[in-house]
Amino acid sequence: MRLWLPLLAFAALLAVVATALYKPADRAVHSALVGQPLPAFRTEPLLAGRPGVASAADGKPRLINVYASWCLPCIAEAPQLMRLKAAGVRIDGIAVRDTPEAMRQFLARNGDPYAAIGADKDGAVQLALGSSGVPETFLVDGRGHILDQHIGDIRADEVDGILKTLGQAR
Protein backbone atom coordinates (compact mmCIF):
# COMPACT_ATOMS: atom_id res chain seq x y z
CA MET A 1 0.00 0.00 0.00
CA ARG A 2 2.86 2.30 1.01
CA LEU A 3 4.23 2.06 -2.53
CA TRP A 4 0.99 3.31 -4.05
CA LEU A 5 1.07 6.56 -2.06
CA PRO A 6 3.22 8.46 -4.59
CA LEU A 7 0.74 7.53 -7.33
CA LEU A 8 -2.18 8.75 -5.21
CA ALA A 9 -0.38 12.01 -4.42
CA PHE A 10 0.35 12.48 -8.11
CA ALA A 11 -3.30 11.82 -9.02
CA ALA A 12 -4.35 14.52 -6.52
CA LEU A 13 -1.83 16.94 -8.02
CA LEU A 14 -3.10 16.16 -11.50
CA ALA A 15 -6.69 16.77 -10.40
CA VAL A 16 -5.72 20.19 -9.00
CA VAL A 17 -3.99 21.42 -12.16
CA ALA A 18 -6.66 19.92 -14.42
CA THR A 19 -9.40 21.85 -12.59
CA ALA A 20 -7.39 25.02 -13.03
CA LEU A 21 -7.02 24.32 -16.72
CA TYR A 22 -10.70 23.72 -17.44
CA LYS A 23 -12.11 26.19 -14.94
CA PRO A 24 -9.88 29.22 -15.42
CA ALA A 25 -9.48 31.18 -12.22
CA ASP A 26 -11.21 34.53 -11.83
CA ARG A 27 -8.32 36.92 -12.35
CA ALA A 28 -10.40 40.07 -12.06
CA VAL A 29 -9.33 42.23 -9.16
CA HIS A 30 -12.56 43.03 -7.35
CA SER A 31 -13.04 46.56 -6.17
CA ALA A 32 -12.70 47.02 -2.43
CA LEU A 33 -15.45 49.66 -2.76
CA VAL A 34 -18.16 47.07 -3.48
CA GLY A 35 -20.63 47.10 -0.56
CA GLN A 36 -19.33 50.48 0.64
CA PRO A 37 -21.17 53.80 0.41
CA LEU A 38 -20.17 56.03 -2.50
CA PRO A 39 -17.26 58.31 -1.59
CA ALA A 40 -18.59 61.86 -1.18
CA PHE A 41 -18.24 64.02 -4.28
CA ARG A 42 -20.07 66.79 -6.13
CA THR A 43 -19.60 67.93 -9.73
CA GLU A 44 -20.70 71.04 -11.59
CA PRO A 45 -22.97 70.54 -14.62
CA LEU A 46 -21.05 70.10 -17.89
CA LEU A 47 -23.94 71.12 -20.15
CA ALA A 48 -26.23 74.06 -19.60
CA GLY A 49 -29.74 72.92 -18.68
CA ARG A 50 -28.72 69.56 -17.28
CA PRO A 51 -27.76 68.97 -13.62
CA GLY A 52 -24.38 67.80 -12.39
CA VAL A 53 -23.83 64.60 -10.40
CA ALA A 54 -23.32 64.17 -6.66
CA SER A 55 -22.89 61.24 -4.32
CA ALA A 56 -26.05 61.94 -2.28
CA ALA A 57 -28.63 59.13 -2.58
CA ASP A 58 -32.29 59.82 -3.33
CA GLY A 59 -33.73 56.35 -2.66
CA LYS A 60 -33.52 55.08 -6.26
CA PRO A 61 -30.83 52.84 -7.75
CA ARG A 62 -28.78 54.30 -10.60
CA LEU A 63 -25.70 53.80 -12.75
CA ILE A 64 -22.82 56.22 -12.53
CA ASN A 65 -20.97 56.04 -15.83
CA VAL A 66 -17.44 57.48 -15.83
CA TYR A 67 -16.74 58.31 -19.48
CA ALA A 68 -15.43 60.90 -21.93
CA SER A 69 -16.13 62.09 -25.44
CA TRP A 70 -12.49 61.37 -26.38
CA CYS A 71 -12.75 57.69 -25.37
CA LEU A 72 -13.27 55.12 -28.12
CA PRO A 73 -14.60 52.22 -25.99
CA CYS A 74 -17.22 54.69 -24.69
CA ILE A 75 -18.62 54.85 -28.23
CA ALA A 76 -18.75 51.04 -28.34
CA GLU A 77 -20.60 51.09 -25.03
CA ALA A 78 -23.20 53.71 -26.03
CA PRO A 79 -25.83 51.32 -27.55
CA GLN A 80 -25.81 49.25 -24.33
CA LEU A 81 -26.38 52.39 -22.24
CA MET A 82 -29.29 53.31 -24.54
CA ARG A 83 -30.80 49.84 -23.94
CA LEU A 84 -30.39 50.29 -20.19
CA LYS A 85 -32.07 53.67 -20.38
CA ALA A 86 -34.92 52.18 -22.39
CA ALA A 87 -35.33 49.59 -19.62
CA GLY A 88 -35.92 52.44 -17.19
CA VAL A 89 -32.48 52.71 -15.58
CA ARG A 90 -31.31 56.15 -14.50
CA ILE A 91 -27.81 56.84 -15.78
CA ASP A 92 -25.65 59.65 -14.42
CA GLY A 93 -22.52 60.49 -16.39
CA ILE A 94 -19.23 61.83 -15.11
CA ALA A 95 -17.33 63.31 -18.04
CA VAL A 96 -13.61 63.18 -17.43
CA ARG A 97 -11.47 66.05 -18.81
CA ASP A 98 -14.10 67.07 -21.34
CA THR A 99 -15.55 70.20 -22.96
CA PRO A 100 -19.26 71.00 -23.47
CA GLU A 101 -18.66 71.37 -27.22
CA ALA A 102 -17.09 67.93 -27.68
CA MET A 103 -19.70 66.34 -25.42
CA ARG A 104 -22.63 67.76 -27.41
CA GLN A 105 -21.18 66.25 -30.60
CA PHE A 106 -20.57 62.92 -28.84
CA LEU A 107 -24.19 62.77 -27.60
CA ALA A 108 -25.57 63.79 -31.00
CA ARG A 109 -23.63 61.03 -32.72
CA ASN A 110 -23.93 58.16 -30.22
CA GLY A 111 -27.21 58.82 -28.40
CA ASP A 112 -27.89 60.46 -25.06
CA PRO A 113 -28.81 58.14 -22.15
CA TYR A 114 -27.76 60.55 -19.39
CA ALA A 115 -30.14 62.04 -16.82
CA ALA A 116 -27.30 64.17 -15.47
CA ILE A 117 -23.75 64.91 -16.60
CA GLY A 118 -21.11 66.17 -14.19
CA ALA A 119 -17.85 67.77 -15.30
CA ASP A 120 -14.72 66.24 -13.82
CA LYS A 121 -12.23 68.74 -15.22
CA ASP A 122 -9.02 67.40 -13.62
CA GLY A 123 -9.98 63.79 -12.94
CA ALA A 124 -10.33 64.39 -9.17
CA VAL A 125 -13.77 62.73 -8.96
CA GLN A 126 -12.54 59.76 -10.96
CA LEU A 127 -9.71 59.39 -8.47
CA ALA A 128 -12.11 59.72 -5.50
CA LEU A 129 -14.23 56.90 -6.96
CA GLY A 130 -11.21 54.63 -7.29
CA SER A 131 -11.66 54.41 -11.01
CA SER A 132 -8.54 53.99 -13.08
CA GLY A 133 -9.81 54.57 -16.60
CA VAL A 134 -12.75 55.21 -18.89
CA PRO A 135 -15.28 53.81 -19.29
CA GLU A 136 -16.15 52.50 -15.85
CA THR A 137 -19.63 52.08 -14.48
CA PHE A 138 -20.73 51.98 -10.84
CA LEU A 139 -23.99 50.23 -9.94
CA VAL A 140 -25.37 52.14 -6.96
CA ASP A 141 -28.41 51.16 -4.86
CA GLY A 142 -31.03 53.52 -3.40
CA ARG A 143 -29.07 54.06 -0.18
CA GLY A 144 -26.01 55.17 -2.13
CA HIS A 145 -24.06 51.90 -1.64
CA ILE A 146 -21.92 50.54 -4.49
CA LEU A 147 -23.29 47.20 -5.75
CA ASP A 148 -20.62 46.63 -8.38
CA GLN A 149 -17.82 48.40 -10.23
CA HIS A 150 -17.83 47.47 -13.91
CA ILE A 151 -14.41 48.13 -15.44
CA GLY A 152 -14.25 48.69 -19.22
CA ASP A 153 -17.10 49.02 -21.69
CA ILE A 154 -20.40 47.26 -21.04
CA ARG A 155 -20.88 44.53 -23.64
CA ALA A 156 -24.22 43.57 -25.16
CA ASP A 157 -24.36 40.32 -23.17
CA GLU A 158 -23.76 42.11 -19.90
CA VAL A 159 -26.86 44.31 -20.01
CA ASP A 160 -29.18 41.67 -18.54
CA GLY A 161 -26.84 41.03 -15.63
CA ILE A 162 -26.76 44.72 -14.78
CA LEU A 163 -30.58 44.97 -14.98
CA LYS A 164 -30.86 41.97 -12.68
CA THR A 165 -28.44 43.42 -10.11
CA LEU A 166 -30.27 46.75 -10.11
CA GLY A 167 -33.67 45.00 -9.99
CA GLN A 168 -32.69 43.07 -6.87
CA ALA A 169 -31.56 46.29 -5.22
CA ARG A 170 -34.95 47.95 -5.49
Partner: peptide, 30 residues
Protein backbone atom coordinates in the same frame (compact mmCIF):
# COMPACT_ATOMS: atom_id res chain seq x y z
CA UNK B 1 -1.42 33.00 -23.33
CA UNK B 2 -3.88 30.66 -21.64
CA UNK B 3 -4.48 27.82 -24.04
CA UNK B 4 -6.59 24.91 -22.73
CA UNK B 5 -5.96 22.73 -25.80
CA UNK B 6 -2.20 22.80 -25.52
CA UNK B 7 -2.44 22.66 -21.75
CA UNK B 8 -4.57 19.50 -21.98
CA UNK B 9 -2.08 17.88 -24.33
CA UNK B 10 0.85 18.44 -21.96
CA UNK B 11 -1.35 17.40 -19.03
CA UNK B 12 -2.22 14.15 -20.82
CA UNK B 13 1.47 13.48 -21.49
CA UNK B 14 2.21 14.22 -17.83
CA UNK B 15 -0.50 11.78 -16.73
CA UNK B 16 0.76 9.03 -19.04
CA UNK B 17 4.49 9.36 -18.27
CA UNK B 18 4.48 10.12 -14.57
CA UNK B 19 1.37 8.08 -13.82
CA UNK B 20 2.86 5.17 -15.76
CA UNK B 21 6.22 5.47 -14.03
CA UNK B 22 4.63 5.61 -10.58
CA UNK B 23 2.45 2.61 -11.45
CA UNK B 24 5.57 0.73 -12.51
CA UNK B 25 7.27 1.91 -9.34
CA UNK B 26 4.44 0.67 -7.13
CA UNK B 27 4.28 -2.66 -8.92
CA UNK B 28 7.99 -3.31 -9.31
CA UNK B 29 10.02 -1.64 -6.61
CA UNK B 30 8.98 -4.24 -4.03
Amino acid sequence: AVDPERGSFILALLAIYIGGALLLFAARVG
